[in-house]
Amino acid sequence: MARILDGKQIASELKENIALEIAKLKEQSIVPGLAVVLVGEDPASKVYVGHKEKACQALGIHSEVIRLAETITTQELLVQIKQLNQRSDIHGILVQLPLPQQLDEQRIIESVSPDKDVDGFHPINVGLLSLGRKTFVPCTPRGIMEMLKFSAIDVAGKHAVIIGRSNIVGKPLAALLLAQNATVTVCHSHTVNLAQVTKEADILIAAVGKGRFVTENMVKQGAIIIDVGINREGKKLVGDVDFDEVEQVASAITPVPGGVGPLTIMMLMANTIEAAKRRALCNKAK
């Protein structure tokens, strides 16, 4: 039976360290501030934003949710972000994705100040990550790396296979794994003989967005499985991995829910604190 990589437990322990960092900042009269921009009424987005609000409240991070109408224009949204960029009490800005179709998503992402880009999506931060430089790391990939580290899983020399090449998970995670000396393969919709490739993985990360996509016949005996997917089946949430099947052959596996998700939220908190620290250093240097 596979070892369960409990994201809730790991997030709980990381939360204690984050709380200490916040306490140190507050001793300097610095209260980390996070603004989340939520456009429209997408149910999943509203749930995610609610989780982020609760985490901020629990840790003592100043949190604001800017709720905007589904019909907002790109220009109107850019004005809102510009105002947040100029506020000294807001250290991190997160634009909740996906955005309504009429909006220019890339232009909006690029409008967030790189120094407040706690999602790590701005091209400047993406470029720094690819160069192995210190920057804001997207929250889910950073959470996965924290999970592996916390679980004493050394990725150096291991073959890591990622299913999914999104800018949010697949690509940044590949850069992080390479920086830790893993051999990385990124699979996608045009990958030939996918099961053959995934069966070579020592560490298999599923971020494809299809429920129970990864089955037992795609997994090498003893592989470590990280399931990023969150898919709804009726009232039940399932991952991209068929947990019941794959648990029988894996050496370690993340559950859904309760795996990667809690760490994604904690990494957002950590990035917000990092942004507040950077601002404090800049202010001292002036």
Rank of each mutant, 00 (worst) to 15 (best):
E13Y: 07
Y48R: 09
R67A: 14
R3N: 13
L148N: 00
A280Y: 11
A35P: 07
T191G: 08
D202E: 05
G164R: 08
L281Y: 06
E233R: 11
A2D: 05
S45V: 03
S45I: 00
E274S: 14
K158Y: 02
N193K: 15
K149V: 03
G259S: 00
A44E: 11
D119M: 13
A206R: 00
L20A: 13
M266H: 06
I18V: 15
V246W: 01
A23H: 09
G170Y: 02
I81H: 07
Q96D: 02
A175Y: 14
A201M: 02
R67Q: 14
G258L: 02
V126L: 10
A58T: 15
R232Y: 09
A152C: 10
A35G: 08
D242Q: 12
A174Q: 08
I226R: 01
G7N: 02
P141E: 00
I153V: 01
T71G: 11
C187A: 13
K134H: 13
K54Q: 14
D119I: 06
D42N: 15
G132V: 04
D89I: 10
G229C: 06
K158T: 05
Q221T: 14
L20M: 13
N17F: 06
L25M: 12
Q86R: 14
L99Y: 05
Q9M: 13
P141G: 00
Y48E: 10
F121Q: 12
P262L: 08
N283A: 15
A223T: 01
D240V: 05
T191H: 08
G239C: 09
R142H: 06
G229N: 08
H91W: 06
L25P: 02
K149H: 09
G222D: 07
I10L: 11
A58Y: 10
M266G: 03
I230M: 15
V112N: 12
L99E: 03
Y48K: 03
E110D: 12
E13L: 13
E76R: 06
R165N: 12
E274V: 12
D240A: 10
K15L: 12
S29I: 05
I22T: 02
F150I: 01
V169M: 08
V49Y: 02
G7D: 02
D242S: 10
A280C: 11
T73R: 13
A275C: 03
E146D: 07
K24F: 04
V31N: 13
I22E: 01
M145P: 00
A160C: 09
L38K: 07
H122Q: 07
M267Q: 12
D104I: 01
K116T: 07
H62T: 11
E146Y: 01
R133W: 03
D244Q: 12
M266T: 09
K171S: 10
R107T: 11
G259A: 00
G164V: 04
T215H: 05
K149Q: 09
I203K: 00
S113A: 10
G170P: 10
L84N: 07
K199W: 04
I162A: 08
A250C: 03
Q106F: 07
A160M: 03
K210Q: 15
Q248R: 15
C56P: 06
L38D: 04
P32K: 09
S130Y: 09
E274I: 13
S63Y: 15
